[in-house]
């Protein structure tokens, strides 16, 4: 498990927990069990851009820090 903001470029994972504003992320298509893929992560305050359902979604770094992602291959390592 890692924060969305900690995903490596091109790394994918599944949303397991949302600690940021549920409403804001839900209406952008980021929900529990959704597959996300990291596109870019800018320093300082973001933005963090991920792909969900073939769509790019941008958010602030603080929002991305509130999303917990399960990444398959790194699980348990």
């Amino acid at each position: 498990m890692k924060r969305l903001s900690e995903l490596e470029y091109g790394e994918s994972g599944v949303v397991r927990e949302i600690r940021a504003s549920q409403h804001e992320l839900n209406c952008l298509g980021i929900r529990m069990k959704k597959q996300v893929k990291m596109i870019t992560r800018q320093p300082i305050k973001g933005p963090v851009v991920v792909v969900v359902d073939d769509m790019e979604v941008a958010m602030g770094l603080d929002t991305a820090e509130g999303v917990v992602i399960e990444t398959g291959e790194h699980e348990g390592s």
């Binding site: 209406c27 952008l28 298509g29 359902d53 769509m55």
Partner: peptide, 10 residues
């Protein structure tokens, strides 16, 4: 129609 789920929220 290519992203139905996303619009269903609204």
């Amino acid at each position: 129609a290519t992203r139905v789920e996303r619009g269903l929220y609204l």
